[in-house]
Each structure stands twice: as structure tokens, then as C-alpha cells.
Design a protein around this nucleic acid. Structure first.
Length: 1139
RNA sequence: GGGCCUGUAGCUCAGUCGGUUAGAGCACUGUGCUGAUAACGCAGGGGUCACUGGUUCGAGUCCAGUCAGGCCCA
């Protein structure tokens, strides 16, 4: 059996598709998984990807890491779960389904019906789960993927006939259930495949979590003023708004007057960017430490802060100056005191129950209050306070017992009690308000104002701040002292400190992740977990219609037990709206009817629970213990500190007070090649499918791996081209080289009796050629380092080491060994070369397999499976190669490095002297500094051949070659002399270098006079460097100097010409499209005497180099391949023809 | 305003324990080699290591501050 030929023009992308077919046909993933059953576990828990759109290339980045380390640990002999996750519930899916259906608001959804709407959400998730699954498979990501046709089928059935009973094949046999329930059981053990966060198990596990939170006393129903999306008609939590929300927007800000009641004729000057909130003004705040001034301006007396004078229009005169605290308590008339809302005692908030203890109306309450946060950077230094329209305002209302006016309903229209504003949409009232203020004579000015303003992270609608009634998890107090001083009792009361303790047990890669997470936890607000929407976790909170008491249901069993009505309206459905809303419970307190709150849950609950739900915490605790905590999880850092990582840790802390993972591996943000974020509208976005089919996924994967994960990654085709050129093509060429010559020689590896398919290359071959031993040492050295790097999730270091190895392999080993492969005789050295390169490549391929699974599979199929009957079917079934430390000969590595260095300098010297390498030269002089490795005769041969010189001479007294440079050994002498060191240095520099060198070489100390003292320096405290002496044909670095003898004798000149002829004939062979092994006839004709002599004298050499059987003098026949050449100005006609 | 990260060649990035002349790849220029050819080698030009101060015999590296960019939180 021989190797299959390697196509010259390989289509890597086509080849990847062939490999995908091969894996599918041979069920390669499943066989790999079976091989590792029962081995020690390596637990990876996947962070769920939102199944709402096709994958982006940034997902490809994260998934490359996940696949790389999964494959690595698999090869290391671990059993893994290989379960991908899909995030399914929440507003992002709803918004897209609304778009599909052309809906404008929540009312449209209600009219359409919750049941069909929810089913459409499920269908959308199933559709995109199947698309993302196909894309992940294309990436080469080996997971326990679902049958995507089945997912599409379920998506269709859930729309058409959710109650139809179907049977699907699971890992342990067929499962029969309704379509709705099969969908609700996806990812569970009986069905296998990816987990879906809409599964029954995920939802009920969250119920269990929430019940535990409730039992600990950390669940509460709260009132707060929060960002609210008018279109989605829901509050936006802190998790959602912080990054994705803010946009640079221009609004019209207004400056207006509040007439003071106790100081007639004087006004407060107030500024706001949200005019609609003036409708609900209750108070005005000043900074108690800030200085305020009364000015006469435009015929009015105005109060504002001294630092804000610049915003006055026209001339002004300062009349009075007071500190802010002196203004506190002054009363004023508000701008909308004519409205019923402002005149209602206790405030006006018809949609939300809240009690601040205020009995007054807003009109009665208008006064100046102190507030430390007031600044002078913008505005007038006097802040208008509307407790129903701002989060901080709301906090102040609690402190000062101010009444609250909440002007907006769920759709952000003004509620009753607002007179002419009632029924108007919040974004449409600015003009009317300005007019109204003007009419009232209290408008000062209106100006455009640009600021970062929060918008909805899903639909980009500008948010408003609205008084809401939501459910929260209490994060506990922040104690004003270092963490280590927090007592156990205090910790018991504060979830945030408990989470921090959990986070302490996690290894963060990169390390700064730890600090970021702790910072988030210290600043984290209470977690708002409710959302007034339709598609998502049904929060299991049942509230009594009569007394308001509420109960948290912990799972489906408790639900059934406690249900007093409505069970038949729920039975058979997944725990989603609308069916779960049918259930009625009986109130423990008063016996009244309890109904579920309509809210659904925050989607990070869905993702955070997976370390319990997917590991069968409720149903198979033993299994959970085996896989929890995860060894490793990974997501992109930005955002996930407050999202998935946070929810994962918070939920594990509540349920088990343990860390759900041992390590967190994070990476930064993917940018377009131009350094900006990818945006379709900017034309710099790249679709995953397009990238995969244009650059190839092996290239894409290597690009991802060859990057420091904490840095943002610039992604694009130029970089991909570079990776292909620098890495993939050279790698392929080495493989091509081996196969080409092995086929010519009919060489294949012999099959050993103890062939081990897990390590098909076998033990390191016993070879003697230093090149072979060197490259084997390099391979195992890099393998050892790669092993350590991958253990530490450091693919970047691994790829750097591997690329250096590839360079050594292509630019030195193969280059230097080429002749060993094409020489005619079949001797031991040739056999060794084959054995070495074959062994090396197979081991190399297996080391690369987790990085670039496709190209390595192709090579493995040819090199291994095509030869060994007992070989595993796929390279991905083999074990991680073991570095053979015994072959790592450090002295050989050093010597070869020196040989390469000398060669490089020799080439530089030739280049300086303008002497091309084909021209043989007599001698190379080399001087190497003391203590550096010397070269063995074999290595000298290599250098001599590479530099095309007849001899190499080491010079120990290289006056002609170099001059010396004497340097103190700072590392030793710095600490020894301290402040005196600069003078020692100067004294040493003043000595003649030759003298110092002589002493150092003789091992004698150098004596110096420094500031009257005698100082002795031992030879090891002095460094001797060389620099090239004057002259062109010399080159040097710090320890090596080389020089070449530039004299070209007639003999050397003749040999140079012969080599030139050989090169021309070689290129003619190629031009004539001869096979590499074809023997030929060669004709030559020239009128130049010198060249003719060379052709005669060197004919034997020319014939053997060019596989010429007959070297014929005279004009070539017309059917030969003929070229006219000019060699060193000499005309020659050459012809070649297959023999 | 607070926390974290980053700032090194035209571009993308390395730079170990603080040590003498700060590197690579790309791009550019020159040149060489060639059965790796969708290449490759060698050389060259290109640097205020963001800035200021400090510690030290010695700072790209450690410390403090400033500036700029990014992320997170107010």
C-alpha cells in the first residue's frame, strides 16, 4: 500500500466539506465519545447561545475555544458531556416574533392570543437552533448535536398541531409524547442533544431556586422607579441597560422659573432635559455646600449656583450670595400646580401602590431640599425633583417623605389627573409643554442638548423612567468595611458576600476577571427578576386576591398538590403562559383565591440555572455530583460579569453555596478589520457562513487560537490570508513533500507488531543524523510546551510554539534534508529521513488536530489509515501525543540554533559582498564568543553546504575579523558596587579592549583604580562582545562574527557556472512539465569557450543533478523543449527531452 | 466620580527575574534562492517604548500621577 497522491492545487474549503461528509458517514463523533466512556470526567458546561438569529463570526471565536479545549481534554483521556445549550426565552425572541407578525404593541399580542404567540416563539427558537447547529457543525465543533431536520419538523408541528402524539428516537429508545411535551423535554437524558432553556426541567429548577430564595427571605415585591421601554411596555433591568442601552442623543433641554412663595419677585432657575417630568415636579434640590447667588437678569431676580452663571442670557448683576443649606426649606410654586394630580393629597400614582408616608399634595410639598449629589457641571445647580420619574428622585422622596406623582401608564401615555396632558404619548408633549410654560411666563430658554441617553437594548426606543411594581432578589447590604472583617452573621444576611466567597474559589483566565466580578458584586443592585411580558419563565408567585399574601411554588409536584382549580386547563402543557395562569391556589392566610402574577422571568435566570438543570440536580443527584462543578466554562468577558457569570454564581450560591465551575475562561470583543464594531449598515460585517466558505474554517480557527484572548480581535480576510500563507500552506507543503517522495521511492512505514492505534507514530525512531535528531527534539520540546499551554487554556502560547516549529521544519529540516530524499541510492540515511519525517508529521498532525480538525484529518487518512489496518478511523479518535523527553537534547538544540545563526550571518556577509549563493567560495571564517556551543562536524557540513563554501575555519584570535567591545556584567556588578557602579563602568571602558580580553581569556582578574580604591573584576564579571571589523564580507551579532574569503579562483568560477547551468536546466524541466522523476536527454550549444569548457569538465555533475542520461553537444532537435539562456553574459542554447 | 484593561515601528502585536544594541509578522525597498511556487531566504529603512515624576547603580518592565482609548459601575 502506498500513499495517495496529494493534489497540487488543493481546495481547502472543498476538502473541509468532504471531511464533514466523512465524519457524518462514519459517525465519527459518536465513536470518539464511546471510546472515552468511563474515563475520568472533564466537565464543560456550555453557556447557552441565544437561538434567535444565525451565528456570527464572534460566536465562531468562542466556539473555537470550546471545541479546542474539549478536543484536547478528550485526547487526554477524559469523558465529556458534549452538550451545547440554547437560550430560548425572553424579550429578544418576542421582539422578533412581533416583527414577523407586524405587531406594534402588547395589545396586538393579546389580540392574537398568548397560546399561538408563545408557540411562535418556540418555533422561532427551534428554527434558529437548527441553523446554529448546522453552522457549528461546519466549524468542526464536535458536540452531541440534534438532528436538524427533526428540529425543523418540531418547529412546524408546534405551530400546526402541538397536541399531536409523536414518537421520536432517544439514546435509550423511542419516546412517545405530545409535540409540546417532546419540545419541552429536548436535551433531557431520554432525548439527548443540546439543552434548551425553555425545557420543563429548566423552568421547574428555577422555581425550586426561587422558592429557596423566598424561604431565605431574599425575595420581595418592590416599587421602584426604573427605566421603562414604552414600546415593549416593560421595565428594563440594570443588567440589560448598562452596556447595550446608552446612545448619544440630542434632546431639547429647558430652563424655567419656579416662583418663590416666601420671597416675592424672586425665582429659582431650574434646568431639565426631560420636560415631561415637569408635570410631576414635587421638590427642588440644592447642594448644601454649593454657593448660590441671586442675580438680576432680564428684569427678573433669579437664584442659581455661582458656578452656573455662564448659562444666563444677557447682562446680569449679582445681588446676594448664600450657601445652599441656607436655601433649604424655601417653598415655591410648581409649573403644573393647576393639574388635579398635583393637588391630590398623598400624591398621584393610580397604577402602583406605594407609601412614602407623605400626606401632603405635591402643591403643598413644593420646597427646596438638600442633596449631596447636586453638581454645577451642567444646569443651574438647582435640580427639579419628580419622584415618580427618576430613580434618584424616588430615593429622595423616601428620605424626605415627599408625595409621588407617577404620570405614565404602561404604554407611556399620561394617566388621568393630568388635565390636557392625559392620554398624550410621553414623547409627543415637549412642544406643548414649552408653550404652556411660556404662557405661564416661567419659560427662560430652550436649547438642544446632546447626552448619553438610555434606549431599549432590543428595539432602540428611548426609555423613560417610570414607577413600577416588580419582583426583586435582595442582594443584601454592603458593609462599610473590608471583606475579611465581615462577620459570619453579617454574611448570612448578605447574598452578595456569599457569592463573593464562591467567586474566591474560581480560577479566572485572565486573572483580572476575578477583580471585575468582585467589583460588580460590590456594586450590584437588587436583582429585578420580573418582566411584564408573555414568553418566558412563568414566575411561580401566586398572590391572594383577598389579602395580598403570596406564595412561591417550588416545582410541578407542589403545583399539582396545591392547585384547587384550573388544573385541567394546564395539564399536559409546558409551564408557560397562558396555560399555567389557569391554576388557582388557596391562600394559607385567609383562604382566598390566589392567582399567578402575570409576569415572566428575567432570562438570565434561565441561563444561570443550567449547572443544576442540565446536570439532573432534581432527578439524579448522583449524576449531578459527578459533573458539578464544571472544570471550565467560557464566554466573552464584556457583559458576562453581570449576566451569565453572575446569574450562574448567584444561583449556585443560593442552592448549594458552592462554585459551579472551577475555572472561567474569558475573551474580549471581536471587531472588524478596520477596528470598529461589525455592523451590517457599515458594510464591515462578515457573516459566519460567508467567512467559513471564503477563508476555510481551519484558517479561521487558527486565527482565533493565535490571539491573546484578553485583547480585542480584529477579524477579516486579510488576516485570514496571512494565516493561510504563513501556516496552512507551509504545513500542507511539508505533507506534500513527504508523500511525493515516498511515492517515488515506494516507501511506506513498516507495521510494528505492537502497533498502538492511539499513538500510531509509535515510539521516537532511533536515528543518528543530527538533523533528524534535532527536528525530533524540537517536536517533542514544542509538544511538551503545547501540552502545558493547553492545560492552562493558553492556545496563544501554543500556536506561537507550533508556528516556530513549523518554520524550523520547513525552512531548515526539509530544506536541508531534500537531497537525502531524492538521492538515488536506498541507504540507511534515506530510510532514517523517511522514518523521521513520517513519525514527526504524524505526531505533529495529532498535536494540531484539536486546533485544525479538518486538514489534519485529511493527512491522517492518507498517512496513517491508508497504511495501518488497525488504525483508528479518525485522527480524533487517537490520544494526545506524549512528549518524549529523552530525545530533547538541549545541547543539540543549542548547536543547531548556532548553525542557523552562522548560516544567516554568512548569507548576510555574502549579500554585503554581492556574492550570490550559487557561486562557491573558498572559506568562511567564524568567531564565536567564549562559552557558546561549538559545532560538530556534521553541523559544519550543513553550514558549509548551505553557504556554498569549501571550508569553515574557526578563529580564536580574530583581530582581522572583529574588534572587541568590553562590557561589565551588570547583573553581577550592579548589586556588588551599587552607587559606585557607574565609575567602575567608566574605568573599565577606559582600558584598552585587547588587554582586557587577554586577561579574561587567561582567566586572570582585571584590576581597576576607582576613586583611589583598587577594584578587582573576575573574568565572569566581564562580558566580551565582538563587532565586525571594517570590510564588506563580514557580519556579526552579539557573540558570533563571520567573514568570507571573497576571492574567486578560476576553479570556483567554473563550478559556479556549472551550478548556474544546472539551475537553468531544472527550471526548463519544470517549464516542459516533466515529472519530477523523469530522466531526460539534454542538448547544449554555445560559442563561448569558457562555458564550453565548464560543460565538459562538469558534465558528470550536471547529468546527475538534472537526471540527464545523455548530455549532448550541439543544437537540440525541434521536438525538444528549447530555451535560449544568457549566463554571466554568455549565450547558450539548451534543449531537454524525456529519455 | 469609582473599578478593571490597554497604550511599544506605517499596520497587527511580542517583550521572561528590572540589565548593556527593544523584537516578530504584515506593508515598503533592495537582493538572492528555487521541484515548498497560492512560495521562500537575506538585507535595509522605519521607535520620544503615550506623558510627567519617583524608586534604583540601572526602568519599555516597578511605584505615583496625568493624558488617550476600551470595558464595567455610579
Amino acid at each position: 500500500m502506498t500513499f495517495k497522491p496529494v493534489p497540487t492545487n488543493v481546495d481547502f474549503i472543498q476538502q473541509e466539506y468532504e471531511v464533514l461528509d466523512f465524519w457524518k458517514e462514519t459517525d465519527a463523533f459518536e465513536k470518539m465519545r464511546q471510546r472515552h466512556k468511563g474515563q475520568p470526567h472533564w466537565s464543560f458546561i456550555d453557556g447557552p447561545i441565544t437561538a434567535n438569529n444565525p451565528m456570527g463570526v464572534h460566536h465562531g471565536w468562542g466556539r473555537t475555544y470550546k471545541d479546542l479545549y474539549n478536543r484536547y481534554w478528550t485526547m487526554r483521556g477524559r469523558e465529556l458531556r458534549y452538550q451545547n445549550g440554547f437560550d430560548c426565552q425572553g424579550l429578544w425572541v418576542e421582539v422578533n416574533v412581533e416583527k414577523e407578525l407586524g405587531f406594534q404593541s402588547k395589545r396586538d399580542i393579546e389580540a392574537y392570543g398568548l397560546d399561538p404567540f408563545v408557540r411562535r416563539c418556540k418555533a422561532r427558537v427551534l428554527k434558529y437552533a437548527s441553523i446554529q447547529t448546522e453552522q457549528s457543525i461546519r466549524l468542526g465543533y464536535w458536540m452531541d448535536w440534534n438532528d436538524t431536520d427533526q428540529l425543523r419538523w418540531l418547529a412546524q408541528l408546534i405551530l400546526e398541531d402541538p397536541q399531536r402524539v409523536i414518537t421520536v428516537e432517544g439514546p435509550e429508545g423511542p419516546v412517545t409524547d405530545t409535540v409540546e411535551q417532546i419540545v419541552g423535554r429536548l436535551g433531557l437524558p431520554e432525548l439527548g442533544g443540546s439543552y434548551f432553556t425553555f425545557s420543563n426541567e429548566n423552568n421547574y429548577m428555577i422555581w425550586t431556586f426561587l422558592k429557596k430564595v423566598w424561604e431565605k427571605g431574599w425575595l420581595y415585591r418592590g416599587v421602584d422607579v426604573m427605566p421603562w421601554c414604552p414600546r415593549c411596555a416593560t421595565a428594563i433591568s440594570q443588567h440589560e441597560i448598562v452596556t447595550d442601552g446608552y446612545q448619544e442623543l440630542t434632546h431639547r433641554s429647558v430652563t424655567l422659573l419656579f416662583p418663590l412663595r416666601n420671597r416675592p419677585g424672586e425665582y429659582l432657575l431650574v434646568w431639565t432635559t426631560t420636560p415631561w417630568t415637569l408635570s410631576s415636579n414635587v421638590a427642588a434640590a440644592v447642594g448644601p455646600e454649593i454657593t448660590y447667588v441671586l442675580v438680576e437678569n432680564q428684569g427678573k431676580k433669579l437664584w442659581l449656583s455661582k458656578g452656573a452663571l455662564h448659562m444666563l442670557q444677557g447682562e446680569y448683576k449679582v445681588l446676594e450670595e448664600r450657601k445652599g443649606e441656607e436655601l433649604v426649606g424655601w417653598t415655591y410654586d410648581g409649573p403644573f400646580d393647576d393639574l388635579p394630580a398635583a393637588q391630590t393629597p398623598g400624591g398621584w400614582h393610580p397604577q402602583v401602590q406605594v407609601d412614602t408616608g407623605a400626606k401632603q399634595s405635591a402643591v403643598e410639598a413644593h420646597r427646596i431640599i438638600p442633596w449631596e449629589e447636586v453638581g454645577e457641571a451642567e444646569g443651574t445647580g438647582i435640580v427639579h425633583i419628580a419622584p415618580g420619574c427618576g430613580a434618584e428622585d424616588f430615593q429622595l422622596s423616601k428620605e424626605h417623605h415627599l408625595p409621588i406623582l407617577a404620570p405614565l401608564d404602561e404604554d407611556s401615555n399620561f394617566v388621568e389627573g393630568y388635565g390636557w396632558l392625559t392620554g398624550k404619548y410621553v414623547a409627543d408633549v415637549a412642544d406643548a409643554i414649552f408653550k404652556d410654560l411660556e404662557k405661564k411666563g416661567i419659560l427662560y430658554k430652550v436649547e438642544p442638548y446632546t447626552h448619553r441617553y438610555p434606549t431599549c437594548w432590543r428595539c432602540s426606543t428611548e426609555l423613560v423612567f417610570r414607577l413600577v411594581d416588580e419582583w426583586f432578589i435582595d442582594m443584601g447590604p454592603v458593609y462599610d468595611k473590608p471583606r475579611e472583617e465581615v462577620t459570619p452573621e453579617e454574611k448570612e444576611r448578605s447574598l452578595r458576600y456569599q457569592i463573593m466567597d464562591v467567586v474566591d474559589n474560581i480560577r479566572w483566565i485572565p486573572e483580572f476577571g476575578y477583580k471585575r466580578e468582585i467589583d460588580w458584586l460590590m456594586n450590584m443592585h437588587d436583582w429585578m427578576i420580573s418582566k411584564k411580558r408573555y414568553w418566558g419563565l412563568a414566575l411561580p408567585f401566586w398572590v391572594c386576591d383577598e389579602c395580598g399574601h403570596y406564595h412561591v411554588v417550588g416545582d410541578e409536584h407542589e403545583l399539582k398538590e396545591r392547585a384547587v382549580a384550573g388544573w385541567e386547563g394546564f395539564d399536559g402543557h409546558t409551564p408557560h403562559r397562558p396555560y399555567v395562569d389557569n391554576i388557582v391556589l388557596k391562600c394559607d392566610k385567609c383562604g382566598g383565591e390566589m392567582h399567578r402574577i402575570p409576569d415572566v422571568g428575567n432570562p438570565w435566570l434561565d441561563a444561570g440555572i443550567v449547572s443544576f438543570s442540565t446536570l439532573q440536580y432534581r432527578t439524579n443527584r448522583e449524576y449531578w455530583r459527578q459533573w458539578y462543578p464544571a472544570d471550565w466554562i467560557s464566554e466573552s468577558f464584556p457583559g458576562q460579569f453581570r449576566n451569565w457569570f453572575y446569574s450562574l454564581f448567584a444561583m449556585a450560591t443560593v442552592i448549594d453555596r458552592s462554585n459551579p465551575t472551577k475555572q472561567v475562561f474569558g475573551y474580549a470583543t471581536l471587531l472588524a478589520e478596520d477596528g470598529r464594531e461589525m455592523h451590517k449598515s457599515w458594510g464591515n460585517a462578515i457573516e459566519f457562513n460567508e467567512a467559513a466558505d471564503r477563508m476555510g474554517v481551519d484558517v479561521m480557527r487558527w486565527l482565533y487560537c493565535n490571539h491573546k484572548p484578553e485583547n480585542n480581535l480584529r477579524f477579516g480576510y486579510h488576516r485570514a490570508d496571512e494565516v493561510r500563507r504563513r501556516f496552512l500552506i507551509p504545513f500542507w507543503n511539508v505533507y506534500n513533500f513527504l508523500v511525493t517522495y515516498a511515492r517515488l521511492d515506494g516507501w511506506t512505514p513498516s507495521v510494528p507488531e505492537d502497533f498502538d492505534p492511539a499513538h500510531p507514530e509509535g515510539p521516537t525512531p532511533a536515528v543518528s543524523n543530527p538533523l533528524d535528531r534535532w527536528i525530533l527534539a524540537r517536536l517533542n520540546d514544542v509538544l511538551a510546551r503545547t501540552t502545558v499551554a493547553l492545560e492552562n487554556s493558553d492556545s496563544y502560547t501554543a500556536t506561537l510554539a507550533i508556528e516556530a516549529l513549523l518554520d524550523d521544519l520547513t525552512n531548515w529540516y526539509v530544506r536541508r534534508s531534500r537531497r537525502r530524499f531524492w538521492k538515488g541510492e536506498q541507504d540507511q540515511d534515506k530510510a532514517d529521513a523517511y522514518i523521521t519525517l513520517y513519525h514527526l508529521l504524524v505526531k505533529f498532525i495529532r498535536m494540531l488536530a484539536p486546533f485544525t480538525p479538518f486538514v489534519t484529518e485529511v493527512m491522517y487518512q492518507n498517512l496513517v489509515r491508508g497504511v495501518f489496518d488497525d488504525a483508528f478511523e479518525s485522527v480524533h479518535h487517537t490520544d494526545w501525543p506524549v512528549a518524549d523527553e529523552s530525545i530533547i537534547d538541549q545541547q543539540l538544540l543549542d548547536r543547531m540554533a548556532l548553525a542557523r545563526r552562522i548560516t544567516s550571518l554568512g548569507l548576510a556577509a555574502r549579500s554585503n559582498a554581492n556574492l550570490r549563493v550559487r557561486q562557491p567560495l573558498r572559506k568562511l571564517y567564524v568567531h564565536v564568543g567564549e562559552g557558546w556551543a561549538d559545532l560538530t562536524p556534521e553541523l559544519l557540513d550543513i553550514v558549509r553546504d548551505e553557504l556554498n563554501v569549501k571550508a569553515i575555519e574557526f578563529v580564536s584570535d580574530p583581530e582581522t575579523l572583529v574588534s572587541y567591545r568590553i562590557l561589565p556584567n551588570n547583573r553581577l556588578l550592579g548589586p556588588k558596587f551599587g552607587k559606585l557602579f557607574p565609575k567602575v563602568r567608566a574605568a573599565l571602558a577606559a582600558l584598552p579592549p585587547e588587554e582586557v580580553v587577554a586577561k579574561v581569556n587567561a582567566g586572570e582578574p582585571v584590576v581597576l583604580e576607582v576613586e583611589g580604591q583598587t577594584v578587582e573584576l573576575s573574568p565572569d564579571e566581564i562580558l566580551v562582545q565582538t563587532q565586525p571589523a571594517e570590510g564588506l564580507a563580514v557580519a556579526a551579532d552579539k557573540v558570533i562574527t563571520v567573514g568570507i574569503d571573497t576571492e574567486i579562483t578560476p576553479e570556483l568560477r567554473a563550478e559556479g557556472l556549472a551550478r548556474e547551468v544546472v539551475r537553468r536546466i531544472q527550471s526548463m524541466r519544470k517549464n516542459a512539465d516533466f515529472d519530477i522523476a523523469d530522466h531526460i536527454r539534454t542538448w547544449w550549444a554555445t560559442e563561448d569557450e569558457e562555458l564550453a569548457e565548464v560543460m565538459d569538465a562538469w558534465s558528470e555533475y550536471i547529468r546527475s543533478e538534472t537526471l540527464t542520461d545523455e548530455l549532448i553537444t550541439g543544437e537540440p532537435p525541434a521536438d525538444a523543449h528549447i530555451e535560449r539562456h544568457k549566463i554571466d553574459g554568455k549565450q547558450v542554447i539548451l534543449g531537454v527531452q524525456r529519455a
